[in-house]
Computed example of a mutant assay.
Amino acid sequence: MKIHIVIPITSDAFNDQILLEARSYVGPEIEIEVSNLSHGPASIESFYDEALAGPAILSEVRRAADSGADSVFITCFGDPAVPAARELVDIPVVGGFEPAVATALTLGARFSVLTVLENVVPMISDLATRMGIRERMVSVEVVDTPVLELHDGEALGKSLAQASHRALDQGADVLVLGCTGMLGVAAALQSQLETDRVRVPVVDPTGASLGLLLTLQSMGLRPSRRTYMPPPDKERIGA
């Protein structure tokens, strides 16, 4: 099985870390390849960024499918261009949000998302509404750290701990990391919270997404063509 990971930024700065993180969730028999965007934003932190990144993401998804990928992970919690990608190719495509939230809902009644900036809170709220689980999302807590500055693990850990306590005080049963750039921190945060308060699952969107792709592959499942219909055949300039 080959999983293609589209890292929807124009830099390859996260590639090695993301490959390492992905390898911690899948076995050596799984082939993993990654690609970045040829054009678009440096990171996705707004609806505007998402719109700019969309065409390049779709190009990478199409290229991955044409080169024999069995599934695609668009590694962004905002699920950018995911519905369009499912129309475009006939293999499973996921982002970070749907798999992470679906996992969270098997682990507790209500969840909170820990994310990067206030700018992305409306994006996450929209995704929760579209998925029909808005009433089970207690809150979206912000660590006030841009995506491209998440490399400081110690500072991120402290900010996530503070955000987690705010979420727990509001009644969250499960915590979801709301950015796929929060690499390698889920287990440590979960352990710290268990020491401080109570056992609360912390869902890593990368692990949830890759796990779902493996499950879909093993069950022979692909997106429904009643929802994700192939785009009508017509001229599209620049597509």
Score class of each variant (00 low, 15 high):
Ala13Ser: 06
Asn15Ala: 12
Gln17Tyr: 09
Gln17Phe: 09
Ile18His: 03
Ile18Phe: 02
Leu19Ile: 14
Leu20His: 14
Arg23Cys: 07
Arg23Glu: 07
Ser24Leu: 04
Ser24Cys: 05
Ser24Thr: 13
Val26Ser: 08
Gly27Asn: 12
Pro28Arg: 12
Glu29Trp: 13
Ile30Gly: 02
Glu31Pro: 04
Glu33Arg: 07
Val34Pro: 00
Ser35Gln: 02
Asn36His: 09
Asn36Gln: 10
His39Thr: 13
Gly40Tyr: 04
Ala42Arg: 12
Ile44His: 08
Glu45Ser: 12
Ser46Thr: 14
Phe47Met: 11
Asp49Asn: 14
Leu52Met: 15
Ala53Ser: 07
Ala56Ser: 14
Ser59Arg: 09
Glu60Ser: 11
Glu60Gln: 15
Glu60Thr: 05
Glu60Ala: 14
Val61Gly: 01
Arg62Pro: 02
Arg63Ser: 03
Ala65Ile: 01
Ser67Gln: 15
Ser67Pro: 04
Gly68Asn: 08
Ser71Met: 03
Val72Met: 00
Phe73Ser: 04
Ile74Ala: 00
Gly78Pro: 07
Gly78Gln: 11
Gly78Val: 13
Gly78Lys: 06
Asp79Trp: 02
Pro80Arg: 02
Ala81Trp: 00
Val82Phe: 05
Pro83Trp: 06
Ala85Gly: 05
Arg86Val: 08
Glu87Gln: 15
Glu87His: 07
Glu87Ile: 07
Pro92Gly: 09
Pro92His: 05
Pro92Gln: 08
Gly95Lys: 03
Pro99Leu: 06
Ala100Leu: 07
Ala100His: 08
Val101Thr: 12
Ala102Lys: 15
Leu105Arg: 12
Leu107His: 13
Gly108Arg: 09
Gly108Glu: 10
Ala109Met: 09
Arg110Asn: 13
Val113Pro: 05
Leu114Gln: 09
Thr115Asp: 01
Thr115Phe: 01
Val116Leu: 11
Val116Cys: 07
Asn119Leu: 13
Asn119Tyr: 07
Asn119Arg: 14
Asn119Glu: 15
Val120Gly: 01
Val120Pro: 00
Val121Thr: 05
Val121Trp: 01
Val121Phe: 00
Pro122Arg: 04
Pro122Lys: 06
Met123Leu: 15
Met123Gly: 08
Ser125Met: 12
Ser125Cys: 07
Ser125Asn: 13
Asp126Gly: 15
Leu127Ala: 13
Thr129Gln: 09
Ile133Gln: 06
Ile133Asp: 04
Ile133Phe: 06
Arg136Pro: 05
Val138Tyr: 03
Ser139Ala: 12
Glu141Asn: 02
Val142Glu: 00
Val143Met: 10
Val143Lys: 00
Val143Cys: 05
Thr145Gly: 01
Thr145Ala: 01
Pro146Phe: 01
Val147Leu: 08
Val147Lys: 05
Leu148Glu: 06
Leu150Met: 15
